[in-house]
Design a protein around this nucleic acid. Structure first.
Length: 775
DNA sequence: GCCCATGCTGTTTTT
DNA sequence: CAGCATGGGC
């Protein structure tokens, strides 16, 4: 670039202040659409171009990988050099994964540790819960996982968990006193597997920095300048890590907007941004209050809504943009009608206002809502893309294939090993796996090592041979690692295991799709291997280990087919940081938005309101808010009241009369008869909501006549039932207490008939059911 | 040890 | 509704 000062052109005063502030802590309070990405990128370019700061000395933490890539690109363009490539820019998770990869051995992990995604974590938890002889119906893996995750994000390790009075009380109250024990076992198992879960990437990074002074010293001096985006969504671990890293130079710049804090369920605490000024001396505070994104009308609505939250950093968002159209508020009969309305309106808006498909976004609170929209868009032939939901990498065939790669890189990864040991089917069944795991646990060795000693626990004959072949194969793959890139290893695996051939021969529709997915995976590995610059992993490392590390942290927002002209569908959470010409926000109904899960405390409700604020402020020119009278939930139609947030919008900002685009003649709507017309005709103000105490409409009116759930006694342990006699009293995990009526069936498969206090007579197969003999 | 049928449960939000 | 775990049959 010719003149570095040119960077400052086109910045407003506060933006310029933020960019040119060089040393010392800086907090940028950036309202929605106030150009904070521009400020961040310009600031980095300024540091490098004006103050000769080396790219290696700058750490920038963003919210998505995509944002990181974009940032690098923009800085590169500003500077007109390749220097930006050396910046440490990425999400907390990916940057720390990269650092941990080179330092892992210092805290006892292999360099090539595996990263467990949520599914892996749940699966390990399930194993551990069963090994502890606990019931996974009561200790549901995802409930336990949430609990453990929250603990990790709050820097509470297994030992602290077990002694924390409050946590123990809470677990006792929900009758899950063993969570602490499970946490401990889970952490131990992950460690044994050489694996870290998502939360560990933060927690272990903290551990690394706080326990090994040389490492702390190294990174404190390396990262002379630290920038953190979306600071309002950081959690306590992230907070502590950034504090440690910034402690020497104190050149820490955080950017955030308390009004857009929407990740408290992930442990984020708004305190971090509210407290920043107390954490450092002489904090420079810059407020970006001019919005460049949205029309006046849209901003008015946003401001009105957020006004209802208490305790914010005071700021006034304003804009020079023109007033624009009023916000359209539309009610439909059902969620399907809502879908039709939106698809019709997109069609209409596209013609009338010359939008491209890519100018539209459909936003919603829950992923499940995407379906109705998707159907309507497909019927009308409007191209779209859904973000979120089940990602490519979560598909079974992809996970199976990746499990091979994982085992080869890290044979201790038991989770992955279990997936592939009998895939493709090679005759290693449940019994053999169980024996292997038991042997491995008893001897404290990995499952893979246990397989090598199969004769020691009674495996012989054909099974032994199959196991030995399997081991030989895996070892062969491992031997390829050193001198081959990720793609050639993956290719070999596809060939030698027979997976590719097997899927190729499967001519069913699903089989075909699976085959194509595997091909796509192989292609993407090839692409990654051949791409010159890789953002993650050490530069030039094209090995399988580096590949796997980044793949787990990819979200599908990241691998955007950037220029595709398609309508985008996503949750509001996923839309954070994005903007669109014309935005539809669907399902603005009580129990959905705000979610029924989040109306119990003021804090929860305020977060929902911030989410609504985020949704509204994604729009540049036009905003549609829609809600349905009733929608399908779990297969049945339920009624919903309009969201309370709608009541907070002043009538004068709204247009309730909007008759959607092609709705007049579009199929389906006509036979809706007057319903569609009714919904547009003189709607007047939103109907009064029922009194606060009224039941959420999704709740069944009468409880279904089914099993009355029994909560097992705390000391519940299955008894030996081999000598069970009629007349004895027993406790069943689910059916509760009862009396044995008779015993029948064969000697090795006895069946007891038990009359339960609350659940009537049941036939119980004693070989399988867990019964506790009471007397 | 494997395969199919049935029944149960889950829907906040994500790295 | 739909995906998945469980369980019963072979």
């Amino acid at each position: 670039m010719q003149n570095i000062e040119d960077l400052l052109k086109g910045l407003n005063e506060p933006q310029r202040e933020a960019v040119t502030h060089v040393n010392g802590p800086l907090m940028i309070v950036a309202g929605a659409g106030s150009g904070k990405t521009k400020v961040l990128t310009t600031r980095i370019a300024w540091l490098m171009g004006k103050h000769n700061v080396d790219a290696f000395n700058i750490l920038a933490l963003t919210f998505t990988n995509k944002a990181a890539a974009e940032m690098k690109e923009r800085i590169g363009r500003m500077l007109g050099s390749n220097e930006a490539r050396n910046l440490y820019v990425g999400t907390f998770h990916s940057v720390f994964a990269r650092i941990l990869r080179s330092e892992a051995e210092k805290i006892g992990y292999p360099r090539s540790f595996t990263i467990y995604d949520t599914d892996d974590s749940r699966s390990v938890l399930k194993t551990v819960i069963n090994e502890l002889n606990l019931d996974d119906k009561h200790y549901k893996p995802n409930v336990v996982h949430n609990r453990i995750s929250a603990a990790k994000n709050a820097l509470v390790g297994p030992a602290e968990y077990a002694t924390d009075y409050y946590l123990q009380q809470e677990d006792a109250r929900t009758n899950r006193p063993a969570i602490g024990m499970i946490y401990k076992a889970y952490a131990a198992r992950c460690f044994k597997n050489g694996a870290m879960d998502f939360d560990d990437l933060l927690l272990k990074m903290y551990e690394l920095l706080s326990t090994i002074p040389e490492v702390l010293h190294k990174y404190q001096h390396k990262f002379k300048y630290i920038l953190i985006d979306e600071y309002q969504d950081t959690n306590p671990v992230q907070y502590q890590i950034s504090k440690l890293l910034a402690a020497v130079h104190e050149n820490i710049c955080v950017v955030g907007d308390d009004a857009q804090s929407i990740y408290s369920f992930r442990g984020a605490t708004i305190e971090n941004i509210l407290q920043f000024q107390k954490d450092y001396d002489d904090v420079k505070v810059v407020k970006l209050e001019q919005n460049y994104r949205s029309s006046q009308s849209i901003l008015n609505v946003a401001n009105e809504v957020i006004k209802n939250n208490k305790g914010q950093i005071p700021k006034v968002l304003w804009t020079d943009n023109k007033e624009g159209e009023k916000i359209k508020l539309v009610r439909t009969m059902t969620d399907n009608d809502e879908g039709k309305f939106v698809a019709d309106s997109i069609q209409e808006q596209r013609l009338r206002n010359h939008y491209r498909n890519a100018d539209f976004a459909i936003l919603y609170r829950t992923n499940a809502q995407s379906r109705a929209f998707e159907e309507s868009l497909r019927k009308m032939g409007i191209p779209y893309r859904i973000y979120g939901g089940i990602s490519f990498y979560q598909r079974k065939e992809i996970k199976d294939f990746l499990a091979y790669l994982r085992v080869i890189v890290n044979t201790k990864d038991e989770e992955a090993l279990k997936r592939i040991i009998n895939y493709p089917v090679r005759g290693i069944g449940k019994t053999t796996i169980e024996k292997t795991v038991i042997y491995a646990n008893e001897n404290n060795i990995s499952m893979f090592d246990a397989l090598e000693q199969a004769p020691a626990f009674g495996i012989k004959g054909g099974t032994l041979e199959v196991i030995q072949n399997f081991i030989t194969m895996i070892k062969y793959f491992r031997s390829l690692l050193q001198n081959n890139d990720a793609y050639s290893v993956a290719q070999q695996i596809g060939k030698h295991t027979g997976i590719v051939k097997e899927l190729f021969n499967d001519k069913t529709t699903e089989g075909l799709a699976r085959y194509e997915n595997i091909q796509e995976l192989l292609n993407s590995i090839k692409e990654w291997t051949e791409s010159p610059a890789n953002e993650e992993g050490e530069v030039g490392d094209k090995g399988l280990g580096a590949y796997l590390q980044q793949i787990t942290l990819l979200t599908d927002a990241d691998d955007d087919k950037e220029n595709a002209d398609v309508v985008k569908l996503m949750t509001i959470h996923a839309a954070k940081g994005l903007e669109f010409g014309c935005v539809f926000v669907g399902g603005i109904e009580e129990t959905l938005f705000p979610s029924a899960m989040s109306i119990n405390t003021r804090e929860e409700l305020e977060e929902e309101r911030r989410l609504f604020y985020v949704a509204v402020t994604r729009a540049k020119e036009r905003l549609f808010l829609t809600y349905a009278n009733s929608r399908y939930r779990f297969g049945n139609l339920v009624q919903n009241e309009p969201s309370r947030f709608l009541d907070e919008l002043p009538e004068s900002f709204l247009d309730r009369t909007f008759a959607g685009g092609g709705a007049r003649n579009s199929s389906g709507l006509n036979n809706m008869g007057s319903a569609f017309q009714r919904m547009h005709r003189g709607m007047g103000p939103a109907p009064e909501r029922k009194s606060e105490g009224s039941k959420p409409s999704y709740m069944p009116v009468a409880p279904k006549q089914q099993t009355i759930n029994h909560i097992p006694s705390p000391d519940f342990a299955p008894s030996d039932t081999s000598g069970l006699q009629p007349g004895q009293k027993v406790e069943h995990q689910k059916f509760g207490f009862g009396e044995v009526i008779k015993i029948e069936g064969s000697a090795h498969n006895p069946v007891a008939t038990v009359k339960f206090e609350h659940n009537g007579e049941k036939k119980i197969m004693l070989n399988y059911a867990k019964l506790r003999i009471v007397e």
